[in-house]
Design a protein around this nucleic acid. Structure first.
Length: 446
RNA sequence: CGGGGUGUGGCGCAGCCUGGUAGCGCGUCGGUUUUGGGUACCGAAGGUCGUGGGUUCGAAUCCCGCCGCCCCGACCA
């Protein structure tokens, strides 16, 4: 993509309303534009990042056996009356009325809707287990939207739902989602720690929140330093192996890690040695919980067991804040110059800076490089503006592309281009072949 | 919803107290400069001063209402 043909409205000055780094940088890098309180338009650069995150979430959901669907944003009040939540939900639910005076609502979540879909066809133990999910815009009329996309009113969420015959089976589904989440966040280049959450009306310990550690997080968290160092890495995961899944969950939920909602100072001190005790702040990016028959009972989603008895299906729901992740990623990956995207979600794989736009040799070499990068499957943003070098470098740094190639007359004389890494700041002079090969190798791994 | 702020060209702000008909910086556009880390110069465009009403000869400025947005608190992906 040539910058001159792209739509990248970067801001030199920081808009006054933005308080935290991710919000400031998203506005400055031209990723979003506010439409009204807590509601944003996604501009090309931001939309690209959002789609990259979505893609990874889709891949990891399906790897774990969840099946993609797409439910509507506007729902009928009828189902919500059946579940009893139409009155229970309160003013956070945006209620609307259609031309026939029917009560509708802009969905804040989809338990009712998905349970209705499931109950319409499933009737026996042979129909489970099933996990359905979608990535769809939600609306919650938050009391106080803030921090840009971190707490918007309209936001993109992955919400998944599991259906099982009983609690034990539901627990297997729960474990699949926990492992899937660990993989998802790791691929996104984030350290997200599963923390025991309030389990709500069902009780038990089957509720976890995933929090990204960041100074601007909204929750205070208490954790064992050792869990921060854990990774799934390349370990082969067999989602059909219930024992392996249970073991992973055990490993990841044994070290102390809780938010202020569930924190128990005495237990914290008893379980974690003083030097390993970490108190920090975190951004909630995921939430998984088992809710038993809470929706199946009122909505009549019943299954016949092998012994002929009928009972309500056991469900769980699993959320990932996709649009919030964009903000969380920036909170975790930025410096005073701008964003630093992990390769897996970067809007472009590499930025190309032509130091002497208008010079035949430089223009030709840049165009050639652009073609070769594209042929290697690497997305490139070529800054072909007639601008001073400093301005071009600053733009690349602001928008956070992980790699930058620089073409200039000095390098060309020596037959090289400069390849620089945004995170480390380290750069090296390479031949065009070597540079393309190196980038291909790096991106083959993400 | 309670508390605190704010609304003036695309962005950041001054002007408001002490009414006289709008200004600065950045950006944008047209030139010149051909640049190795936000270059310099010349020129230009762009504003219902959030909105409705009131006071006044005259309102961005004073008064009243409404709306938007931001921050702190209770809620959540």
């Amino acid at each position: 993509m040539r910058l001159s043909r792209y739509f990248l409205p970067v801001l030199k000055e920081t808009p006054a309303e933005a308080q935290i780094a991710s919000h400031r940088l998203m506005l400055r890098a031209g990723m979003i534009r506010q439409a009204s309180a807590g509601i944003y338009s996604w501009l090309p650069l931001g939309y690209q990042v959002l789609r990259n995150i979505e893609r990874i979430v889709h891949e990891e959901q399906q790897r774990a056996g969840a099946i993609p669907i797409l439910m509507p944003t506007i729902q009928s009040a009828e189902l919500w009356r059946e579940s009893g939540r139409y009155d229970a939900y309160g003013p956070e639910m945006l209620r609307i009325r259609d031309r026939h005076d029917r009560d509708m609502l802009f969905g804040p979540t989809n338990e009712e809707q998905v349970t209705e879909i499931f109950r319409a066809s499933a009737s026996s133990y042979r129909d489970v287990p099933k996990m359905l999910y979608h990535i769809q815009w939600k609306f919650r009329d938050e009391i106080r939207p803030r921090f840009g996309v971190m707490r918007g009113r309209e936001f993109l969420m992955k919400d998944g739902y599991s259906f099982d015959l009983d609690r034990d089976a539901a627990e297997v589904s729960y474990n699949k989602m926990m492992v899937s989440y660990l993989r998802t966040f790791e691929r996104l280049g984030l350290k997200a720690v599963p923390m025991q959450a309030e389990s709500g009306p069902i009780g038990g310990d089957l509720a976890h929140e995933f929090l990204v550690l960041a100074e601007t997080g909204e929750s205070e968290v208490f954790l064992d330093r050792r869990i921060v160092e854990m990774t799934l890495g390349d370990s082969a995961i067999d989602y059909d192996d219930a024992d392996q899944l249970a073991a992973i969950r055990r490993d990841w939920t044994t070290p102390y890690a809780r938010t202020d909602d569930t924190h128990d100072q005495a237990a914290f001190e008893a379980e974690v040695a003083a030097p390993d005790r970490v108190t920090a702040r975190g951004i909630e990016v995921g939430h998984i919980f088992y809710f038993g028959t809470k929706y199946a009972e009122p909505l009549g989603a019943m299954l016949t067991a092998p012994d002929g008895t009928r009972a309500a299906v056991h469900g769980g729901s699993y959320g990932i804040g996709v649009s919030r992740l964009v903000g969380a990623l920036i909170e975790a990956n930025h410096d005073d110059k701008g964003i630093i995207w992990p390769e897996s979600v970067a809007p472009f794989a590499v930025g190309l800076v032509n130091l002497k736009q208008g010079d035949d040799a430089c223009d030709g070499a840049s165009a050639d490089l652009e073609t070769r990068l594209a042929a290697a499957g690497l997305s490139v943003l070529y800054d072909d503006r007639d601008e001073r070098a400093g301005a071009k470098f600053a733009t690349m740094e602001l928008i956070g592309l992980p790699w930058r190639l620089t073409v200039g007359p000095r390098g060309l004389k020596a037959g090289t281009v400069e390849l620089a890494n945004r995170r480390s700041g380290i750069s090296e002079e390479l031949s065009v072949d070597a540079a393309v090969a190196k980038l291909s190798l790096i991106y083959a791994g993400v």
